[in-house]
Amino acid sequence: MLKEIKALIQKDLLLDWRQRFSLASVILYLACTIFIVVIATQSNNPGLWNAVFWIVVLFVSSNAVAKSFIQESDRQRIYYYTLANPIAVLTSKYIYNTLILFVLSMIAFGLLTFFTINPVRLNGLFFLTLFLGATGFSIVFTFTSSIASAASNRNTLLAILSFPLLLPMLFTLLKLSQQSLGLITDTSYETDILILVAIDLLLVGVSFLLFPYLWKD
């Protein structure tokens, strides 16, 4: 199982390396969005920075993850499932997408800081929040993209299926991020971190239970 996961992640890395332009297009999309948003807002307000940052990360994540299941053909997928355990396929996608999303949100942070200001006061907490955000987004987007891949007009469907599901996570992430920006002081932010981890575990567990029903045709 672990070997399979490792091999699958390597396969995804290799595929993305060979098709560099597809990942590069996501990064370009990210840069364009940030550029537009910065020009449109023209503000150094940390509260606004926080909102803009998470909106950009959310939309870029949805675009980046959409590649994972939606852009694979049905036959390609069936082929993977015959080669490896489907759960291993799902797990590898979770891990790989978490990495990609973490890197993308770091790039978003770098670009936004470059163009505006760096309002982050608690660096450790902020990057932990980024990582937790990447994990949660990766789980929800990956699983809903595997749901959406069964239907037509997949990209719109991915957004309407996953954005409402992400809201509980987003509430907590925004709160933690505000904390790390020094916008609010909350002594019990460890609970928020635990809640995020608990939501992630819950969703991973349920998706493992449900995934076999999705891919069998």
């Binding site: 699983f143 749901i147 599901l165 509980p168 939501i199 819950l202 349920v206």
Partner: peptide, 22 residues
Amino acid sequence: AVYNIFAFVALIPLIFVVPRMM
């Protein structure tokens, strides 16, 4: 059916946890 179950599980924190935090 898969989406219905997944959505309900994702709603549980929203219904029972988040309102207690805010």
